[in-house]
Nucleic acid binder design. Structure first.
Length: 467
RNA sequence: GGCGCCGUAGCCAAGUGGUAAGGCAGCGGUCUGCAAAACCGUUAUUCACCAGUUCGAUCCUGGUCGGCGCCUCCA
């Protein structure tokens, strides 16, 4: 049994096997750094993260590359409007993006690469495409002639047969009933950043960077190329045209696309004013791991309608798992081992794996965890859970958290040291023992005010910090 | 118009040709000095609607209605 993934190219779920032993060559489309990442972006990147983690969990060696698009129309326009150099402008947002990724607990990719540091590779690719007759020039810009590439449309499953090939269309006067040729190299404009190239000074078009960088670091054929579904056309279609036009080989074996996150049942947009950034949500008091859980818990091919109710539900769900982990670590259990519970843990792990293997069905994987947590909680209540079962129970939680990673609270409130809490808890326990409930309730309230929640168990009191 | 996705309880959501996982919320209990946590029970005779195939369909086919996305920059 192995991983099965839905391939946009074939519109089917397929067994995933890398072309070269157990090494996976993967490329994911990263951000254009012209503003802060919003939760829609983050959904796709969360999907990337879950995919990476699961591939690793299944013992694949990952060679994954993510790009940073740091030259693009909006970037140029905004940096010019601010009167600062493009690099300075993009740097601040790239930094913010990397911070956000850390906040979201994303595993860093093998390589994070910038478009502006790969201009020579892009130029070389365009030259090669030129030699092979895929390009034509117009007003100093270089265009890709899709009519020369027979496979054009195979990813988006569009039939472009009726389109007049090679018709020269200015991007600004784009006529959708006509050619879909796209720009590889934009002619230099006054005051704008540019690079030198044999075919004229200018800057790269959007699509060429991914083809050039993916090929450079991963070779002609990738095992996986992933990104948001809105990139499927034209971006990924164009990447195929460029890369395969150049190499003559299949560009990517698996194309994975993450569905959109919606807000109020429609795509986020500035005009609707329904864009939320991670930073805004954190400022509102939402823990980042709550956002992570919400984004990860809905399977990636399903549209996810963001809501604050959903965010609250995510927080409660995490809380329950944390309570369970706390109980597991602090309660005392009778000696011995329950074999049925050991078997139960094995089943939980198998069910979790099966869910994840099935095209990263996180909802199913989560269900396996919750069912197990409920069963073991019941066993603990009944006294059937033994000290010898703790290790396997921890393994289940660790497996879960190695993918979801939400158990550790983000905010470490420095305020009250553990020792001080322990002292107060001890004082309260004594008061409670003496039936001085007034004093014991007082201390409990006091601790709560300082962000510490106290819980009584049959073996005494335990505490946790409020998240 | 073309391409693609979707419509399962209050909300989120899994799922299979044979009779509906899981999470959140709600209600009723157990436990508790009170809480908290946890557990138990309960909440869809039903899976947008219609027709067909079938012994049998939420899952297959056709159609209808509804929602969303891409086709222009976009995660």
């Amino acid at each position: 049994m192995g991983i099965r993934l839905y391939n946009s190219l074939t519109l089917q779920v397929e067994d995933f096997v890398p072309s070269d032993s157990n090494a996976v060559r993967m490329y994911t489309c990263g951000p254009t750094v012209y503003s802060f990442a919003h939760i829609g972006n983050l959904r796709t990147f969360t999907f990337n993260d879950i995919l990476r983690r699961w591939l690793r969990a299944r013992d694949f060696v990952l060679h994954d590359v993510m790009n940073i698009t740091d030259v693009e129309d909006k970037i140029i326009r905004n940096s010019m409007a601010k009167g600062i150099p493009m690099g300075e402008y993009t740097q601040q947002y790239e930094k913010a993006f990397i911070e956000d990724c850390a906040t979201m607990r994303f595993v860093p990719p093998w390589r994070l690469v910038r478009a502006t540091e790969h201009i020579p590779e892009m130029v070389a690719m365009i030259e090669k495409l030129h030699e092979k007759g895929f390009t034509y020039e117009s007003d100093g810009s270089v265009y890709y002639r899709i009519g020369r590439f027979p496979g054009y449309g195979k990813l988006s499953h569009n039939d472009f047969g009726g389109i007049r090939a090679g018709a020269r269309v200015d991007v600004d006067e784009y006529d959708k009933d006509d050619a879909r040729d796209f720009v590889l190299w934009k002619a230099r404009k006054e005051n704008e950043p540019f690079w030198e190239a044999p075919f004229g000074n200018g800057r790269p078009g959007w699509h060429i960077e991914c083809s050039a960088m993916a090929t450079k670091y991963l070779g002609d054929t990738l095992d996986i190329h992933a990104g948001g579904i809105d990139l499927l056309f034209p971006h990924h279609e164009n990447e195929i045209a460029q890369s395969e036009g150049c190499s003559g080989k299949p560009f990517a074996r698996f194309w994975l696309h993450c569905e959109h996150l919606l807000v109020d049942f429609s795509k986020m947009s500035k005009s609707l004013g329904n864009i939320y950034t991670l930073r805004e949500l954190i400022e509102m008091g939402h823990a980042p791991e709550t956002v992570r859980y919400l984004l990860a818990s809905v399977p990636y091919r399903k549209k996810l309608n963001f809501s604050f109710d959903g965010l609250k539900a995510a927080a409660t769900s995490i809380e329950r798992l944390r309570n369970y982990a706390l109980r597991l670590n602090t309660d005392k259990y009778p000696d011995g081992v329950s074999e049925p519970l050991e078997a139960r843990a094995v089943k939980a792990l198998a069910d979790f794996d099966a869910g994840m293997d099935d095209d990263l069905n996180t909802a199913e994987a989560l269900a396996a965890i919750y069912e197990y947590v409920r069963d073991t909680n019941s066993a603990m209540d009944a006294g059937d859970f033994k000290a010898g079962n703790v290790a396997s129970a921890k393994r289940v939680l660790e497996k879960f958290d190695s993918v979801f990673e939400v158990l550790a609270p983000s905010v470490t409130e420095g305020a009250l040291p553990d020792a001080a809490i322990d002292a107060l808890v001890a004082e309260r326990s004594l008061a409670k023992k003496n039936k001085d409930f007034k004093r014991s309730d007082e201390i409990r309230a006091e601790l709560l005010a300082m962000g510490v929640i106290l819980e009584d168990t049959k073996d005494g009191a335990r505490w946790k910090r409020k998240s």
